[in-house]
Simulated assay, not measured.
Amino acid sequence: MQRAIIAVIVINSVTIGMETSSHLMDRAGDLLHAVDRLALAIFTVEIAARLYAYRREFWSDPWNWFDAIIVVVALVPATGPLSVLRALRILRALRLISAVPSMRRVVNALLTAVPGMASIIGLLVLMIYIAAVVATTLFGDIVPERFDELPRSLFTLFQIMTGDDWGSVAQEVMEHKPWAWMFFIAYILMSTFVALNLFIAVVVNAMNDAEPSPAETQAQAELETVKRELAAVNAKLDQLLIRQTSPANGRGRRHQQL
C-alpha cells in the first residue's frame, strides 16, 4: 500500500510539472487534468481511511497532520482570489517525505538541529550586520551603488558571502582604496569559511546522532549475537547442573527410606 501511494505521489508530481508546458497542455491537457484529479481522489481516500482506522490517534503523529494539511489545501477550489492555490498543488510532492522513512529520518534530524542552527544563524547575522556598518562607513562615498546605505550594504555583503562575483565588488572598491582587500578577505573567511561551515557541521552532527553509522549498526548486531550466544551457554550450564544434582538427590532419598 505504501509503495502504491509513493508511486501515485511521483506520478502526480510529474504530471503537475508537465502542466507548466503549453505544448503538452495543447496535446494532452485533458489527460493531465484527469490524472491530477485521480491522484487527489486517491490521496483523499487514503487520508479518510487512516482517519477511520486510527481515529483520535491519527492526530497524535505530526506527519499525519502534515499529510492532512497538504490534501486539504489541494481540495480548496483554486478559483478567484484563491487561484494562487493552484500553484501550491506541487506541495503534494512533499508527501514523499512522510511516505519514505529515510526522508523522514533526515527531516527529523534537521528539526533536532534547529536550536544549534539558530545559534549559528544568529552569529552569522551579527557578523554581516557589523561588516555592513563598517562597509557603509568606509566605502559608501566611493562605491555608492554598492554601499551607500545599510540595506544595500547588507545585500552586497550577502552576495559576497554566497561567492557571487565578489571579486568584481572588491575590485571596484580597491580602485579607490587599495587596502580594501583586507576587509573583504577577513569578511569572507569569517562568514563563508567559518560560520557557514559551522552551520553544516551542526546539521551533519544531528544527522549522525539521529541515524547510526554502518559501523555502529554492525557493532550493535555483533553485540546482540554475543548476547544470544551467552544466553545459550548459560542455558546449557543450567541443564548440566540440574543433571549433576539429580542423582545425588535420588541417593539421599533412598538413604532416608533405609
Rank of each mutant, 00 (worst) to 15 (best):
residue 65 W to N: 01
residue 137 T to N: 13
residue 189 L to Q: 10
residue 57 E to L: 11
residue 133 V to S: 08
residue 158 F to T: 07
residue 104 R to D: 06
residue 47 I to R: 08
residue 139 F to R: 03
residue 163 G to T: 03
residue 174 M to H: 11
residue 92 R to W: 03
residue 142 I to W: 07
residue 35 V to M: 13
residue 13 S to V: 01
residue 39 A to W: 00
residue 30 D to V: 06
residue 4 A to R: 08
residue 153 S to Q: 00
residue 59 W to I: 14
residue 68 A to P: 06
residue 41 A to W: 09
residue 34 A to I: 03
residue 186 A to T: 14
residue 66 F to C: 05
residue 28 A to V: 05
residue 73 V to K: 00
residue 58 F to R: 01
residue 51 L to A: 06
residue 190 M to N: 06
residue 164 D to R: 05
residue 11 I to Y: 09
residue 205 N to I: 10
residue 184 F to H: 01
residue 154 L to D: 04
residue 7 A to P: 00
residue 217 T to E: 15
residue 171 Q to W: 10
residue 133 V to N: 10
residue 42 I to K: 02
residue 110 L to V: 04
residue 108 N to S: 04
residue 84 V to W: 11
residue 83 S to E: 12
residue 243 R to W: 13
residue 178 P to N: 13
residue 254 R to G: 04
residue 61 D to L: 00
residue 220 Q to P: 06
residue 151 P to T: 01
residue 125 V to L: 15
residue 180 A to F: 00
residue 8 V to I: 15
residue 178 P to M: 11
residue 197 N to W: 06
residue 216 E to L: 09
residue 108 N to T: 03
residue 105 R to I: 05
residue 51 L to E: 07
residue 24 L to R: 01
residue 32 L to M: 12
residue 36 D to I: 03
residue 6 I to N: 02
residue 67 D to L: 04
residue 54 Y to N: 12
residue 225 T to S: 12
residue 57 E to V: 07
residue 43 F to W: 10
residue 156 T to A: 03
residue 8 V to T: 15
residue 145 E to R: 08
residue 20 T to L: 15
residue 16 I to H: 04
residue 105 R to D: 11
residue 76 V to Q: 05
residue 184 F to C: 04
